[in-house]
Write a protein that binds this DNA or RNA. Structure first.
Lengths: 110, 110
DNA sequence: ACTTCATTTAGATGATTAGCTAAACGTCGA
DNA sequence: TCGACGTTTAGCTAATCATCTAAATGAAGT
């Protein structure tokens, strides 16, 4: 979860995801959209790969990246729903906020 | 937008938001839930304030923090909807992805 | 085999981040 | 005004991050 949000915290990476929404693209095509060096883009791709938000497939000389929409959805929607956001599966209009999990000096998930 | 995702990229800060979901809490109460120093917590509060995700109200000796749910919703849902996620306002099942805004060396929002 | 094109790795730098302790600040109540 | 309490600021450290240039890798094409 932290990995996803960290990946999303960079504008360049968010933009890459948006480009990928239209379909798979090669690393070079993607890089052409940004005023940074290829190695820098490669690092951004790596961050997105590590967050499992994209996946890479080698095709001859090129590397084709594709969006993993389901992972994005799980992270975003999962978190949103914990707050009763997101339209669908909201568990309560939150006037009486959902069962407070007993906590004190609790462990951090992740 | 970047600010929100950056704020969300830290587990401690996400946890603070979740605690705040149940209602306003003082900085001290919140801090009691985490094994870090008060100054460190204060920095986390500042990050959340800067992202406009919480708001602070002084009440005598204490500072009471409240969640700004609407800001969280706008950021999360706004981004999700750009991908056709989120149940409600999806604009297309995305077989033919939405109008690609003509771009090349485009400016990064934020 | 050599060249060329696409991408990644190596290695460096400056900025930012999360964490700490210790000190300062601000607001109450006595 | 003083002391106590809760919070923030100062100043530090170690780690991570975004970026660069230069070089290495890998796969075609000739």
């Amino acid at each position: 979860m932290t990995g996803v949000f960290k990946a999303l915290s960079d504008p360049t990476r968010r933009h890459v995801l948006e480009l990928l929404r239209r379909g798979p693209m090669t690393a070079g095509e993607l890089a052409d959209h940004f005023p940074v060096s290829k190695p820098t883009m490669s690092a951004h791709f790596a961050a997105l790969r590590e967050a499992d938000l994209i996946f890479a497939k080698k095709d001859g000389k090129q590397v084709v990246y594709s969006l993993k929409l389901s992972v994005l959805e799980d992270a975003l929607m999962g978190f949103a729903q914990a707050f009763g956001l997101g339209g669908k599966t909201q568990d309560a209009p939150a006037e009486t906020p959902p069962e407070p999990p007993s906590d004190a000096k609790e462990a951090l998930p992740e």
